[in-house]
Design a protein around this nucleic acid. Structure first.
Lengths: 190, 190
DNA sequence: TTTTTTATTGAACATTTGTCTAATAAAAAG
DNA sequence: CTTTTTATTAGACAAATGTTCAATAAAAAA
């Protein structure tokens, strides 16, 4: 038995394409299931066969972008197995470029009416990526899950603020900003 | 003219009470407007006169709790006008106790199906509170909005992870954890 | 190819949503 | 207390939701 029927693939593709088309003209919140199915020429019952709500369909598209995030994050590791940890989170730094590339998408992710699950998809991804660096400097008794949650969400905080400025600053400036913030935290205890 | 009609107050109270009752037996997501109105004995049209969706009703309840957060946060300031900044974020520290007190509420706030707006309500509140401390140590060229966004969301990251453990750890442990994490960030660059 | 499996369809259904009326009742203002 | 203002109501409406069914068509397996 095959992992997925061709008909399923075709149906899902049609639905995703329809959603993406509709997203270009109106906000996610105002798009109905009926509308997507009408455009995709898919029976509404078929939609419910694969998804429970529009958000589930969007999440599938979301995962493609998370794949790119992981790839761009891991790029610095392709040449060196272990990065110089003296440099300020050198690997973290690619995340801002990734967000900038997909800012139309992230405007949706960070919008008020969207479900928290989108935030978690991003949060979990960044947290997982950070854990790789974590192991290196882990002499402390702090729970790695807690530490990575702290750092991952701190960065998401910057991104939210960035998004509030409609991603005006270049990604490179955000990198510098992150470095400066980390320095402040050191100075203030000197 | 008075700020609000008695009828409005009564209606809103009835709706909030109905929502809170329903929340004890089922998740927010599965509660319908029709259901709330039926229980509150309020005409459905009246609901739409005050709110656009269930989430708006929940947000009104949310704001009561945000009031308590602000109060408990500002408690350390009641006796001293300026806190010793050498101590690790002494004022921040009350937030974990607040969350613990209202953990049934925060389980909803951090649940996957809820809209991002709930997250923003909390994020904005914590960010505002942090800005008070911020001014003291602000010699750097970093945008205060960015810095407070970073720190506020970092703490929310800890709370999310805490929530994943269903708030098992005592709030006091979370305080210690926060102190340890801040120390790690210093050590790792010595 | 033929057979078997199963995804999709159209149609129907009860329910909820969001919006709108004119009638009513409650509160505020005089 | 009387008048004025306005919040609430019941009812109706088109649309969307969520679910179910037997019939059909497409894909996988033989």
């Amino acid at each position: 038995m095959l992992k997925s029927d061709l008909r399923i693939t075709k149906t899902k593709q049609a639905l995703e394409e329809a959603l993406l088309t509709l997203l270009q003209e109106k906000p996610l919140k105002s798009i109905s299931i009926t509308e997507i199915c009408r455009l995709a020429k898919i029976n509404r019952g078929t939609f419910y066969l694969h998804y429970g709500q529009i958000e589930d369909l969007f999440e599938e598209y979301y995962k493609e972008i998370m794949k790119d995030l992981t790839d761009s994050y891991q790029e610095p590791y392709r040449h060196a197995d272990i990065l110089n940890t003296k440099k300020l989170n050198p690997s973290t730094i690619r995340i801002f470029h990734h967000i900038e590339t997909y800012k139309n998408f992230y405007r949706i992710v960070f919008s008020r009416t969207v479900p928290m699950s989108y935030y978690y998809l991003l949060f979990n991804q960044v947290q997982d990526l950070l854990k790789r660096d974590m192991e290196l400097k882990l002499k402390s008794s702090v729970d790695p899950a807690m530490l990575s949650a702290y750092q991952a969400n701190a960065i998401l905080g910057l991104i939210i603020e960035w998004g509030r400025n409609d991603f005006q600053q270049p990604a490179e400036d955000m990198n510098l900003l992150l470095v400066r913030i980390l320095n402040i935290q050191i100075e203030s205890r000197g």
